[in-house]
């Protein structure tokens, strides 16, 4: 086993450990962690089985194997960013609704206190 392979495996283990820690501590909701665990597992496969990238590149007809990694991750990150925008928009609506309800409740309470 090459030194770089050992480094890669340790890095991936650290990455998976970090994600797990966030989930366990409740800082990351499971639905957002799935993609990161998935990425961790894919990275693990590439670190343990070095030829896999070359085989994959040959299969797709890619001349320079590492470019496959770039295109794959670029695509994944792109999709995930769109997903985050959707989540953000949904939260925007929810916060708006909550604030409106609070404003209405505040008025009701102050009306009650006047009597």
């Amino acid at each position: 086993m090459d030194k770089i392979q050992i480094v890669a495996i340790i890095a991936v283990l650290f990455f998976i450990g970090l994600i797990s820690r966030f989930i366990i501590r409740g800082k990351l909701r499971t639905e957002y962690s799935i993609i990161w665990i998935l990425i961790g597992l894919i990275l693990m496969v590439f670190s343990l089985w070095r030829q896999s990238l070359d085989l994959l590149a040959k299969f797709f007809g890619v001349f320079y194997a590492p470019s496959l990694i770039f295109i794959f991750f670029f695509f994944m990150i792109f999709i995930f960013l769109i997903h985050l925008s959707v989540v953000n928009s949904k939260q925007h609506e929810q916060i708006k609704k909550l604030a409106q309800e609070i404003a209405l409740l505040k008025e009701k309470i102050s009306e009650k206190n006047k009597i």
Partner: peptide
Amino acid sequence: AKYLDNPINLQIGGTVQLGFMYANE
């Protein structure tokens, strides 16, 4: 005056909509 007090800035649309909610209630 009778007034509502937004806990955050809701922008013009969210504010007017709040008025509609009040009218309905």
